[in-house]
């Protein structure tokens, strides 16, 4: 059986090498190789991402990827965020009726140190690592308009910290420190509300001052002369990009933590709750 597996693996690698050799020598036609330039649209994005000479076109962020995600293609990202949170809402709906509060109360007697979780070494290491992970993820998220990073990256990096605590301690450890369903749901909702308000901020300003303005507008445009300031106390904050990154960071971190807490509830408790519903 193992010889057969190894034979198939070797033949797969030989297939890759043969196909590559055939396409290199044009025996089977041409394969599109990397271009020497970039496409027209990409060169437009690269040229205007931070270009003070064209203040009506630029997104005022040296990071072209974040500028595309939250400025040029902002509405795309808004609806992708909607898909993301619908998936989390679907996961929550499957776990409906399972209350974490009773879970924490029923386990009030278990002590933290002795019975639950992994060894003392892992617990000490986790206690040291958790603030570091949170700090690094916040740095990734809040510098997202200047360096590689942003709300999505920072949020998923921050979600590693509660997962580490869940594995090394237990779900009760998090529940007793107040990291349960409700605060995470609040955090997630605050993030989504932040995205919503930032997307509409320029429209509100336009309505108040009586000039033309767009949804998801960042810098002033030709027919819409209002915008969010790119500099705050002489520091580049790239207008709405900083606010979007901050909100998305809170929303992604809160949403993932919520799902992980629900996933780590012991199965016997869930089964007894489901059985109880059926008997009623």
């Amino acid at each position: 059986m193992n010889v057969k597996k190894a034979l198939i693996l070797v033949s797969l690698i030989i297939l890759v090498l043969t196909l590559s050799a055939a396409f290199t020598s044009s025996a089977l036609g041409h394969y599109p190789l990397p271009l020497s330039g970039v496409r027209w649209l990409a060169s437009w994005y690269l040229y205007t991402t931070l270009n003070p000479q064209y203040p009506k076109f630029t997104a005022m962020s040296p990071e072209a990827v974040t500028a595309i995600v939250w400025d040029y293609r902002g509405l795309d990202t808004l609806f992708e965020t909607a898909v993301f949170f619908l998936a989390i809402v679907g996961a929550l709906a499957l776990m409906r009726g399972i209350s974490l509060k009773s879970l924490a109360e029923s386990n009030e007697t278990t002590t933290e140190g002795a019975g639950s979780g992994l060894s003392l070494i892992s617990k000490t290491a986790a206690k040291l690592l958790t603030p570091l992970i949170i700090a690094v993820s916040a740095s990734i998220a809040l510098h997202g308009h200047l360096t590689p990073g942003g709300g999505f990256q920072g949020g998923s990096a921050a979600a590693v910290a509660p997962l580490l605590l869940l594995v090394i301690f237990s779900v009760y450890f998090l529940l007793r420190r107040g990291i349960s369903e409700k605060p995470m749901l609040t955090l997630r909702t605050a993030g989504l509300l932040g995205i919503y308000l930032t997307a509409l901020a320029v429209v509100f300003t336009g309505l108040v001052t009586g000039v033309n303005a767009y949804v998801f507008q960042n810098q002033p445009k030709f027919d819409a002369p209002v915008g969010i300031p790119a500099y705050l106390f002489n520091t580049l904050v790239s207008g709405s990009l900083f606010l979007f990154n901050l909100s998305e960071y809170l929303a992604v971190a809160g949403g993932f933590t919520l799902v992980f807490i629900l996933l780590s509830i012991p199965e016997e408790l869930v089964m007894s709750l489901i059985r109880g519903e059926e008997h009623e």
Binding site: I140, F152, Q153, S156, A157, A159, V160
Partner: peptide
């Protein structure tokens, strides 16, 4: 680098 940062965690 953006994708690497999001892909690692």
């Amino acid at each position: 680098p953006d994708i690497a940062l999001v892909y690692v965690p």
